[in-house]
Design a protein around this nucleic acid. Structure first.
Lengths: 128, 128
DNA sequence: TGACAAAAACGACCTAGGTAGTATTACTTC
DNA sequence: GAAGTAATACTACCTAGGTCGTTTTTGTCA
């Protein structure tokens, strides 16, 4: 894949998320999906999709005169890449200090804490 | 503070980190600190510091003809802001899915897992 | 005091994201 | 077949990070 999956703009990320949820979407599809949160012009979405295709982030195929886009990078890949990049540049690679900051400044429900403990147990199993 | 503490460039973040570790540093100080990892021109650092001051990220005071800079935003603040922003935009605010991704794709030592469990216990105490 | 060096100021340029208007093309429908 | 509509294509512009080169100022020291 592209080595620069981290460093995606906000709009690019939202478009990718839209495509992950609804693969093979036309410009109109993406545009109307994003309409409520960002009141963008149709051409803004179209232009961004074209730019993203040039960067290899999405691909398209044509049906009649309409382009249908799909993501060319996996959600897992992007999330991992962006997440790791953040931990690296902010916390020198220390996952625990990253989580520490998150935990100490966010409201975290008990259910989420339960979930986290399960994840830790699973991680222990894996490294055993 | 500034509402845009998230969205800092890599260089800006590194400069801030340098200033957090060594407050009241001259351009030469920051430049030589960053020298090993990034072979930047002196003026690059100076220019970036000036731009950062214009954005309110750092301040300076003069001693003789030399500027001494210090960070105008706290490390805690920036880390929290950047971290939260990431969790929001990548995982819709779910801390556990963020941590899940991190845990599932990184090598995490047992010591770090221990540390995480302690953090969770502390968080539970706090919300009780 | 005159040369040198160090420091800041300024301006220039490139890249990339983001946003959108205008032009062109082509399909549909009366 | 002409008008209207819905697509894409193209171009332009703004902002911000990042990177330096050149110029100006000023202090130091032989």
């Amino acid at each position: 894949m592209n080595s620069t999956t981290h460093r995606l703009g906000d709009l690019q990320l939202r478009i990718l998320q839209s495509l992950w949820a609804r693969p093979n979407a036309s410009v109109a599809d993406v545009h109307s999906e994003l309409k409520p949160e960002r009141n963008l012009a149709y051409t803004t979405v179209a232009t961004m999709l074209r730019k993203m295709e040039a960067r290899g982030l999405v691909t398209h195929h044509e049906e009649g005169r309409t382009f249908f886009y799909r993501a060319n990078v996996a959600a897992e890949e992007v999330n991992r890449s962006v997440g790791n990049h953040l931990v690296e540049r902010l916390f020198e690679g220390s996952l625990s200090s990253a989580v520490h900051h998150l935990l100490s400044t966010r409201e975290v429900s008990n259910a989420e804490l339960d979930q986290l403990e399960i994840l830790i147990k699973e991680a222990r199993q894996r490294t055993k």
